[in-house]
Design a protein around this nucleic acid. Structure first.
Lengths: 212, 212
DNA sequence: CGAGTTGGCTAATGACCATTAGCCATCACA
DNA sequence: TGTGATGGCTAATGGTCATTAGCCAACTCG
Protein backbone atom coordinates (compact mmCIF):
# COMPACT_ATOMS: atom_id res chain seq x y z
CA UNK A 1 0.00 0.00 0.00
CA UNK A 2 1.87 3.00 1.30
CA UNK A 3 5.27 3.10 -0.32
CA UNK A 4 7.33 0.59 1.78
CA UNK A 5 10.12 1.00 -0.65
CA UNK A 6 12.83 -1.61 -0.45
CA UNK A 7 13.94 -3.73 2.55
CA UNK A 8 11.17 -4.98 4.82
CA UNK A 9 12.96 -5.58 8.09
CA UNK A 10 11.50 -4.58 11.42
CA UNK A 11 12.36 -2.05 14.06
CA UNK A 12 16.14 -1.77 14.03
CA UNK A 13 16.20 0.38 17.14
CA UNK A 14 14.76 0.77 20.60
CA UNK A 15 15.31 3.76 22.84
CA UNK A 16 14.90 3.86 26.62
CA UNK A 17 18.19 2.50 27.85
CA UNK A 18 21.49 4.19 28.61
CA UNK A 19 23.50 4.31 25.41
CA UNK A 20 26.27 1.93 26.30
CA UNK A 21 24.13 -0.64 28.02
CA UNK A 22 22.19 -1.56 24.90
CA UNK A 23 25.33 -1.93 22.83
CA UNK A 24 27.03 -3.95 25.57
CA UNK A 25 23.96 -6.18 25.94
CA UNK A 26 23.96 -7.01 22.29
CA UNK A 27 27.64 -7.78 22.26
CA UNK A 28 27.11 -10.00 25.24
CA UNK A 29 24.16 -11.76 23.60
CA UNK A 30 26.32 -12.41 20.54
CA UNK A 31 29.09 -13.87 22.64
CA UNK A 32 26.65 -16.08 24.47
CA UNK A 33 25.07 -17.31 21.24
CA UNK A 34 28.46 -17.97 19.73
CA UNK A 35 29.50 -19.92 22.81
CA UNK A 36 26.39 -22.10 22.67
CA UNK A 37 26.74 -22.74 18.96
CA UNK A 38 30.47 -23.44 19.13
CA UNK A 39 29.73 -25.98 21.86
CA UNK A 40 26.85 -27.62 19.98
CA UNK A 41 28.22 -27.67 16.46
CA UNK A 42 31.90 -26.89 16.70
CA UNK A 43 33.66 -23.68 15.70
CA UNK A 44 34.15 -24.50 12.04
CA UNK A 45 30.63 -25.80 11.59
CA UNK A 46 29.12 -22.65 13.06
CA UNK A 47 28.51 -19.87 10.54
CA UNK A 48 28.18 -16.18 11.12
CA UNK A 49 24.66 -16.57 9.75
CA UNK A 50 23.90 -19.06 12.57
CA UNK A 51 25.21 -16.70 15.22
CA UNK A 52 23.31 -13.79 13.73
CA UNK A 53 20.07 -15.79 13.58
CA UNK A 54 20.47 -16.69 17.27
CA UNK A 55 20.32 -13.00 18.19
CA UNK A 56 17.82 -12.01 15.52
CA UNK A 57 20.03 -10.32 12.95
CA UNK A 58 21.82 -11.25 9.72
CA UNK A 59 25.35 -12.54 9.57
CA UNK A 60 27.01 -9.46 8.13
CA UNK A 61 25.40 -7.24 10.76
CA UNK A 62 27.50 -8.98 13.39
CA UNK A 63 30.50 -7.06 12.13
CA UNK A 64 29.01 -3.92 13.64
CA UNK A 65 29.70 -5.54 17.03
CA UNK A 66 32.64 -7.91 16.67
CA UNK A 67 35.75 -7.83 14.55
CA UNK A 68 35.68 -11.43 13.35
CA UNK A 69 34.47 -14.93 14.05
CA UNK A 70 37.90 -15.79 15.33
CA UNK A 71 37.78 -13.00 17.89
CA UNK A 72 34.69 -14.62 19.41
CA UNK A 73 36.55 -17.90 19.80
CA UNK A 74 39.71 -16.31 21.14
CA UNK A 75 37.78 -14.44 23.83
CA UNK A 76 36.17 -17.65 25.03
CA UNK A 77 39.41 -19.59 25.10
CA UNK A 78 41.60 -16.95 26.72
CA UNK A 79 38.90 -15.98 29.21
CA UNK A 80 38.42 -19.59 30.24
CA UNK A 81 42.09 -20.20 30.74
CA UNK A 82 42.58 -17.01 32.75
CA UNK A 83 39.56 -17.68 34.93
CA UNK A 84 40.78 -21.17 35.80
CA UNK A 85 44.13 -19.79 36.85
CA UNK A 86 42.56 -16.97 38.84
CA UNK A 87 40.18 -19.39 40.61
CA UNK A 88 43.10 -21.63 41.46
CA UNK A 89 45.08 -18.73 42.89
CA UNK A 90 42.13 -17.72 45.04
CA UNK A 91 41.55 -21.33 46.12
CA UNK A 92 44.95 -21.95 47.65
CA UNK A 93 45.30 -18.80 49.72
CA UNK A 94 44.31 -18.97 53.37
CA UNK A 95 45.81 -22.31 54.26
CA UNK A 96 49.17 -23.99 54.16
CA UNK A 97 47.85 -27.50 54.62
CA UNK A 98 48.63 -29.40 51.46
CA UNK A 99 45.56 -31.61 51.79
CA UNK A 100 43.33 -28.59 52.15
CA UNK A 101 45.01 -26.83 49.25
CA UNK A 102 44.49 -29.83 47.02
CA UNK A 103 40.86 -30.18 48.03
CA UNK A 104 40.20 -26.51 47.36
CA UNK A 105 42.04 -26.58 44.04
CA UNK A 106 40.08 -29.59 42.87
CA UNK A 107 36.80 -28.14 44.04
CA UNK A 108 37.50 -24.91 42.15
CA UNK A 109 38.45 -26.93 39.07
CA UNK A 110 35.25 -28.99 39.19
CA UNK A 111 33.08 -26.00 39.99
CA UNK A 112 34.35 -24.15 36.95
CA UNK A 113 33.86 -27.11 34.66
CA UNK A 114 30.30 -27.65 35.93
CA UNK A 115 29.18 -24.01 36.10
CA UNK A 116 30.85 -22.99 32.86
CA UNK A 117 30.59 -26.25 31.04
CA UNK A 118 30.19 -24.68 27.60
CA UNK A 119 33.26 -22.50 27.98
CA UNK A 120 35.30 -25.39 29.32
CA UNK A 121 34.04 -27.75 26.64
CA UNK A 122 34.85 -25.36 23.82
CA UNK A 123 38.10 -24.42 25.52
CA UNK A 124 39.21 -28.00 25.38
CA UNK A 125 37.93 -29.00 21.97
CA UNK A 126 38.84 -25.99 19.89
CA UNK A 127 42.47 -25.40 20.79
CA UNK A 128 43.39 -26.46 17.28
CA UNK A 129 41.01 -23.90 15.79
CA UNK A 130 42.87 -21.02 17.46
CA UNK A 131 45.27 -19.04 15.36
CA UNK A 132 48.61 -17.86 16.61
CA UNK A 133 49.61 -16.24 18.84
CA UNK A 134 46.40 -17.02 20.72
CA UNK A 135 46.96 -20.75 20.59
CA UNK A 136 50.38 -20.54 22.19
CA UNK A 137 49.07 -18.22 24.83
CA UNK A 138 46.32 -20.64 25.81
CA UNK A 139 48.69 -23.59 25.74
CA UNK A 140 51.12 -21.78 28.00
CA UNK A 141 48.31 -21.02 30.40
CA UNK A 142 47.18 -24.63 30.48
CA UNK A 143 50.71 -25.76 31.08
CA UNK A 144 51.03 -23.35 33.97
CA UNK A 145 47.74 -24.57 35.39
CA UNK A 146 48.83 -28.19 35.26
CA UNK A 147 52.13 -27.33 36.90
CA UNK A 148 50.32 -25.85 39.89
CA UNK A 149 48.59 -29.16 40.56
CA UNK A 150 51.71 -31.18 39.94
CA UNK A 151 53.89 -29.08 42.25
CA UNK A 152 51.26 -29.13 44.94
CA UNK A 153 51.18 -32.91 44.76
CA UNK A 154 54.98 -33.08 44.77
CA UNK A 155 55.02 -30.97 47.89
CA UNK A 156 52.55 -33.31 49.57
CA UNK A 157 54.74 -36.27 48.68
CA UNK A 158 57.88 -34.53 49.97
CA UNK A 159 56.09 -33.78 53.25
CA UNK A 160 55.03 -37.39 53.56
CA UNK A 161 51.36 -36.45 53.42
CA UNK A 162 50.67 -37.89 49.97
CA UNK A 163 51.69 -41.35 48.81
CA UNK A 164 51.76 -42.14 45.12
CA UNK A 165 53.93 -43.17 42.22
CA UNK A 166 53.89 -40.26 39.82
CA UNK A 167 52.83 -36.71 40.53
CA UNK A 168 52.49 -36.11 36.83
CA UNK A 169 50.04 -38.92 36.31
CA UNK A 170 48.13 -37.94 39.42
CA UNK A 171 47.82 -34.35 38.25
CA UNK A 172 46.75 -35.39 34.78
CA UNK A 173 44.14 -37.79 36.14
CA UNK A 174 42.68 -35.17 38.42
CA UNK A 175 42.58 -32.51 35.73
CA UNK A 176 41.17 -34.89 33.10
CA UNK A 177 38.39 -35.97 35.46
CA UNK A 178 37.35 -32.36 35.66
CA UNK A 179 37.54 -31.82 31.94
CA UNK A 180 35.22 -34.80 31.57
CA UNK A 181 32.66 -33.14 33.83
CA UNK A 182 32.15 -30.42 31.22
CA UNK A 183 31.02 -33.02 28.71
CA UNK A 184 28.35 -34.75 30.75
CA UNK A 185 27.23 -32.42 33.55
CA UNK A 186 23.92 -30.64 33.32
CA UNK A 187 22.04 -28.62 35.91
CA UNK A 188 19.09 -30.41 37.40
CA UNK A 189 20.71 -33.82 37.13
CA UNK A 190 21.56 -36.25 39.90
CA UNK A 191 24.05 -33.92 41.58
CA UNK A 192 24.33 -30.25 42.40
CA UNK A 193 27.53 -28.40 41.61
CA UNK A 194 28.44 -28.39 45.31
CA UNK A 195 27.91 -32.13 45.71
CA UNK A 196 29.97 -32.76 42.63
CA UNK A 197 32.82 -30.55 43.79
CA UNK A 198 32.90 -32.24 47.19
CA UNK A 199 32.89 -35.77 45.77
CA UNK A 200 35.65 -35.00 43.31
CA UNK A 201 37.60 -33.46 46.16
CA UNK A 202 37.35 -36.80 47.97
CA UNK A 203 38.37 -38.69 44.85
CA UNK A 204 41.43 -36.50 44.39
CA UNK A 205 42.52 -37.09 47.97
CA UNK A 206 42.13 -40.83 47.44
CA UNK A 207 44.23 -40.62 44.29
CA UNK A 208 47.09 -38.98 46.17
CA UNK A 209 46.86 -41.59 48.89
CA UNK A 210 45.28 -39.70 51.78
CA UNK A 211 43.09 -41.93 53.94
CA UNK A 212 39.63 -40.68 54.79
CA UNK B 1 61.85 -34.63 -26.22
CA UNK B 2 59.97 -37.82 -27.05
CA UNK B 3 56.28 -37.01 -27.16
CA UNK B 4 55.31 -36.76 -23.41
CA UNK B 5 51.93 -35.61 -24.53
CA UNK B 6 49.72 -34.12 -21.88
CA UNK B 7 49.69 -34.72 -18.11
CA UNK B 8 53.11 -35.11 -16.54
CA UNK B 9 52.42 -37.23 -13.48
CA UNK B 10 54.67 -40.10 -12.50
CA UNK B 11 54.34 -43.86 -12.45
CA UNK B 12 50.73 -44.56 -11.70
CA UNK B 13 51.34 -48.30 -11.27
CA UNK B 14 53.69 -50.88 -9.92
CA UNK B 15 53.48 -54.61 -10.58
CA UNK B 16 54.97 -57.38 -8.46
CA UNK B 17 52.40 -57.78 -5.71
CA UNK B 18 49.29 -59.92 -5.45
CA UNK B 19 46.36 -57.94 -6.86
CA UNK B 20 44.40 -57.39 -3.71
CA UNK B 21 47.30 -56.58 -1.46
CA UNK B 22 48.29 -53.44 -3.34
CA UNK B 23 44.74 -52.16 -3.36
CA UNK B 24 44.28 -52.95 0.31
CA UNK B 25 47.58 -51.28 1.19
CA UNK B 26 46.54 -48.08 -0.46
CA UNK B 27 43.16 -48.07 1.21
CA UNK B 28 44.91 -48.63 4.49
CA UNK B 29 47.40 -45.83 3.85
CA UNK B 30 44.50 -43.51 3.09
CA UNK B 31 42.74 -44.42 6.30
CA UNK B 32 45.91 -43.88 8.27
CA UNK B 33 46.56 -40.51 6.67
CA UNK B 34 42.96 -39.46 7.27
CA UNK B 35 43.24 -40.51 10.90
CA UNK B 36 46.40 -38.49 11.42
CA UNK B 37 45.00 -35.43 9.71
CA UNK B 38 41.64 -35.62 11.48
CA UNK B 39 43.54 -35.76 14.77
CA UNK B 40 45.88 -32.89 13.90
CA UNK B 41 43.49 -30.51 12.20
CA UNK B 42 39.99 -31.75 12.92
CA UNK B 43 37.58 -33.43 10.54
CA UNK B 44 36.10 -30.33 9.03
CA UNK B 45 39.43 -28.60 8.59
CA UNK B 46 40.89 -31.57 6.75
CA UNK B 47 40.31 -31.54 2.99
CA UNK B 48 40.28 -34.43 0.58
CA UNK B 49 43.22 -32.65 -1.07
CA UNK B 50 45.14 -32.89 2.22
CA UNK B 51 44.45 -36.60 2.56
CA UNK B 52 45.38 -37.22 -1.05
CA UNK B 53 48.64 -35.29 -0.69
CA UNK B 54 49.55 -37.38 2.36
CA UNK B 55 49.48 -40.53 0.21
CA UNK B 56 50.86 -38.91 -2.93
CA UNK B 57 47.74 -38.52 -5.05
CA UNK B 58 45.18 -35.81 -5.82
CA UNK B 59 41.98 -35.36 -3.88
CA UNK B 60 39.57 -36.66 -6.50
CA UNK B 61 41.61 -39.84 -6.96
CA UNK B 62 40.68 -40.84 -3.42
CA UNK B 63 37.21 -41.67 -4.68
CA UNK B 64 38.65 -44.68 -6.48
CA UNK B 65 39.29 -46.12 -3.00
CA UNK B 66 36.76 -44.67 -0.59
CA UNK B 67 33.14 -43.65 -0.99
CA UNK B 68 33.33 -40.34 0.84
CA UNK B 69 35.15 -38.30 3.44
CA UNK B 70 32.45 -39.12 5.90
CA UNK B 71 32.97 -42.84 5.43
CA UNK B 72 36.57 -42.39 6.58
CA UNK B 73 35.41 -40.72 9.77
CA UNK B 74 32.63 -43.22 10.42
CA UNK B 75 35.04 -46.14 10.12
CA UNK B 76 37.36 -44.61 12.69
CA UNK B 77 34.59 -43.81 15.15
CA UNK B 78 32.69 -47.08 14.90
CA UNK B 79 35.87 -49.16 14.89
CA UNK B 80 37.15 -47.41 17.99
CA UNK B 81 33.92 -47.88 19.89
CA UNK B 82 33.66 -51.55 18.96
CA UNK B 83 37.27 -52.25 19.84
CA UNK B 84 36.89 -50.70 23.28
CA UNK B 85 33.87 -52.87 23.98
CA UNK B 86 35.59 -56.00 22.66
CA UNK B 87 38.70 -55.30 24.76
CA UNK B 88 36.54 -54.82 27.81
CA UNK B 89 34.73 -58.09 27.20
CA UNK B 90 38.04 -59.91 26.88
CA UNK B 91 39.41 -58.18 29.97
CA UNK B 92 36.78 -59.34 32.43
CA UNK B 93 36.66 -63.04 31.52
CA UNK B 94 38.78 -65.41 33.58
CA UNK B 95 38.11 -64.00 37.02
CA UNK B 96 35.12 -63.27 39.22
CA UNK B 97 36.99 -61.06 41.63
CA UNK B 98 35.55 -57.60 41.31
CA UNK B 99 38.85 -55.91 42.17
CA UNK B 100 40.64 -57.89 39.50
CA UNK B 101 37.89 -57.23 36.98
CA UNK B 102 38.10 -53.50 37.63
CA UNK B 103 41.88 -53.50 37.37
CA UNK B 104 41.79 -55.37 34.08
CA UNK B 105 39.02 -53.20 32.66
CA UNK B 106 40.92 -50.04 33.52
CA UNK B 107 44.18 -51.41 32.16
CA UNK B 108 42.46 -52.30 28.88
CA UNK B 109 40.90 -48.86 28.75
CA UNK B 110 44.21 -47.10 29.32
CA UNK B 111 46.08 -49.39 26.97
CA UNK B 112 43.68 -48.61 24.16
CA UNK B 113 43.85 -44.87 24.74
CA UNK B 114 47.65 -44.94 24.80
CA UNK B 115 48.25 -47.34 21.91
CA UNK B 116 45.52 -45.91 19.71
CA UNK B 117 45.64 -42.37 20.87
CA UNK B 118 44.73 -40.86 17.51
CA UNK B 119 41.65 -43.05 17.11
CA UNK B 120 40.57 -42.36 20.66
CA UNK B 121 41.24 -38.65 20.33
CA UNK B 122 39.26 -38.33 17.11
CA UNK B 123 36.61 -40.67 18.49
CA UNK B 124 36.02 -38.31 21.36
CA UNK B 125 36.29 -35.00 19.58
CA UNK B 126 34.36 -35.65 16.40
CA UNK B 127 31.16 -37.20 17.66
CA UNK B 128 29.33 -34.10 16.55
CA UNK B 129 30.75 -34.41 13.04
CA UNK B 130 29.16 -37.82 12.56
CA UNK B 131 25.96 -37.99 10.57
CA UNK B 132 23.06 -40.17 11.54
CA UNK B 133 22.59 -43.03 12.04
CA UNK B 134 26.31 -43.38 12.77
CA UNK B 135 26.26 -40.85 15.57
CA UNK B 136 23.50 -42.63 17.46
CA UNK B 137 25.25 -45.93 16.99
CA UNK B 138 28.47 -44.61 18.48
CA UNK B 139 26.63 -42.90 21.34
CA UNK B 140 24.79 -46.10 22.16
CA UNK B 141 28.09 -47.97 22.21
CA UNK B 142 29.67 -45.42 24.52
CA UNK B 143 26.71 -45.58 26.82
CA UNK B 144 26.98 -49.37 26.93
CA UNK B 145 30.68 -49.08 27.67
CA UNK B 146 30.13 -46.70 30.56
CA UNK B 147 27.41 -48.94 31.96
CA UNK B 148 29.84 -51.83 32.17
CA UNK B 149 32.13 -49.84 34.44
CA UNK B 150 29.30 -48.49 36.51
CA UNK B 151 27.67 -51.87 37.07
CA UNK B 152 31.00 -53.42 37.94
CA UNK B 153 31.54 -50.74 40.56
CA UNK B 154 27.99 -51.16 41.87
CA UNK B 155 28.64 -54.86 42.26
CA UNK B 156 31.81 -54.15 44.21
CA UNK B 157 29.90 -51.82 46.51
CA UNK B 158 27.11 -54.37 47.01
CA UNK B 159 29.72 -56.99 47.91
CA UNK B 160 31.30 -54.64 50.40
CA UNK B 161 34.58 -54.64 48.48
CA UNK B 162 34.35 -51.08 47.21
CA UNK B 163 33.49 -48.06 49.33
CA UNK B 164 32.39 -44.88 47.65
CA UNK B 165 29.58 -42.38 47.30
CA UNK B 166 28.46 -42.58 43.70
CA UNK B 167 29.20 -45.34 41.23
CA UNK B 168 28.28 -43.02 38.40
CA UNK B 169 30.81 -40.38 39.36
CA UNK B 170 33.44 -43.05 39.97
CA UNK B 171 32.85 -44.58 36.54
CA UNK B 172 32.93 -41.21 34.84
CA UNK B 173 36.13 -40.19 36.60
CA UNK B 174 37.86 -43.42 35.66
CA UNK B 175 36.75 -43.25 32.03
CA UNK B 176 37.58 -39.55 31.71
CA UNK B 177 41.08 -40.12 33.07
CA UNK B 178 41.61 -42.57 30.24
CA UNK B 179 40.19 -40.25 27.63
CA UNK B 180 42.66 -37.67 28.84
CA UNK B 181 45.55 -40.05 28.24
CA UNK B 182 44.83 -39.92 24.51
CA UNK B 183 45.46 -36.20 24.51
CA UNK B 184 48.87 -36.13 26.17
CA UNK B 185 50.45 -39.57 25.87
CA UNK B 186 53.25 -40.13 23.40
CA UNK B 187 55.53 -43.11 22.90
CA UNK B 188 59.01 -42.56 24.19
CA UNK B 189 57.91 -40.30 27.01
CA UNK B 190 58.33 -40.79 30.73
CA UNK B 191 56.17 -43.94 30.88
CA UNK B 192 55.65 -47.05 28.79
CA UNK B 193 52.14 -48.17 27.97
CA UNK B 194 52.45 -50.98 30.51
CA UNK B 195 53.59 -48.69 33.29
CA UNK B 196 50.78 -46.32 32.51
CA UNK B 197 48.15 -49.05 32.50
CA UNK B 198 49.38 -50.37 35.84
CA UNK B 199 49.44 -46.98 37.52
CA UNK B 200 45.97 -46.09 36.33
CA UNK B 201 44.81 -49.48 37.57
CA UNK B 202 46.09 -48.49 41.02
CA UNK B 203 44.43 -45.11 40.80
CA UNK B 204 41.09 -46.67 39.88
CA UNK B 205 41.27 -49.02 42.85
CA UNK B 206 41.99 -46.07 45.10
CA UNK B 207 39.01 -44.22 43.69
CA UNK B 208 36.68 -47.09 44.54
CA UNK B 209 38.11 -47.27 48.04
CA UNK B 210 40.23 -50.41 47.92
CA UNK B 211 43.29 -50.17 50.18
CA UNK B 212 46.62 -51.17 48.72
C1' DC C 1 14.80 20.48 13.41
C1' DG C 2 18.90 18.69 11.20
C1' DA C 3 23.30 16.39 10.93
C1' DG C 4 26.05 12.76 12.39
C1' DT C 5 26.17 8.12 14.37
C1' DT C 6 24.50 3.61 14.96
C1' DG C 7 23.22 -0.70 13.59
C1' DG C 8 20.37 -2.88 10.61
C1' DC C 9 20.00 -4.67 5.55
C1' DT C 10 21.17 -6.75 0.70
C1' DA C 11 24.47 -7.73 -2.66
C1' DA C 12 29.02 -8.54 -3.92
C1' DT C 13 33.68 -10.64 -3.40
C1' DG C 14 36.98 -14.03 -3.28
C1' DA C 15 37.83 -18.20 -1.34
C1' DC C 16 37.51 -22.97 -0.59
C1' DC C 17 35.55 -27.62 -0.90
C1' DA C 18 33.32 -32.37 -1.62
C1' DT C 19 32.13 -34.71 -5.25
C1' DT C 20 31.36 -35.96 -10.24
C1' DA C 21 32.60 -36.31 -15.22
C1' DG C 22 35.35 -37.66 -18.45
C1' DC C 23 39.97 -38.68 -20.10
C1' DC C 24 43.94 -41.84 -20.44
C1' DA C 25 48.13 -44.74 -19.36
C1' DT C 26 49.31 -49.01 -17.50
C1' DC C 27 48.49 -53.61 -16.19
C1' DA C 28 46.66 -58.40 -16.11
C1' DC C 29 45.29 -61.80 -18.72
C1' DA C 30 43.27 -64.20 -22.51
C1' DT D 1 48.70 -58.78 -28.94
C1' DG D 2 44.62 -56.55 -27.64
C1' DT D 3 40.99 -55.74 -24.39
C1' DG D 4 38.86 -54.76 -20.07
C1' DA D 5 39.79 -53.16 -15.43
C1' DT D 6 42.28 -50.19 -12.49
C1' DG D 7 43.63 -46.05 -10.66
C1' DG D 8 45.69 -42.01 -11.78
C1' DC D 9 44.66 -37.08 -13.74
C1' DT D 10 42.30 -32.31 -14.86
C1' DA D 11 38.25 -29.73 -15.23
C1' DA D 12 33.75 -28.90 -13.98
C1' DT D 13 29.75 -28.53 -10.72
C1' DG D 14 27.19 -26.82 -7.18
C1' DG D 15 27.59 -25.42 -2.92
C1' DT D 16 29.11 -22.83 1.36
C1' DC D 17 31.30 -19.23 3.87
C1' DA D 18 33.76 -15.10 6.09
C1' DT D 19 34.08 -10.74 5.13
C1' DT D 20 33.44 -6.15 2.70
C1' DA D 21 30.78 -2.50 0.27
C1' DG D 22 27.37 0.37 0.10
C1' DC D 23 22.69 1.69 1.33
C1' DC D 24 19.33 3.49 4.60
C1' DA D 25 16.15 4.24 8.66
C1' DA D 26 15.97 5.51 13.29
C1' DC D 27 17.96 7.62 16.99
C1' DT D 28 20.82 11.21 19.45
C1' DC D 29 22.22 15.45 20.42
C1' DG D 30 23.24 20.09 19.42
Amino acid sequence: MTSSRSGSYERPHRPAQPEDTRAADRRSAIRQAALRLFAEQGYRATTMTDIGAAVGIRGPSLYKHVASKHELLAEIMIGTMEQLIADNTAAVIGTDDVREQLRRSVEAHIRYHARHRLEAFVGNREIGSLEQPDQDRVLRGRSDYERRFRELIERGVAEGTFHLQSARIASYSILDMGIGVASWFHEGGEFSVDQLAYQYGDIALRIVGVRA
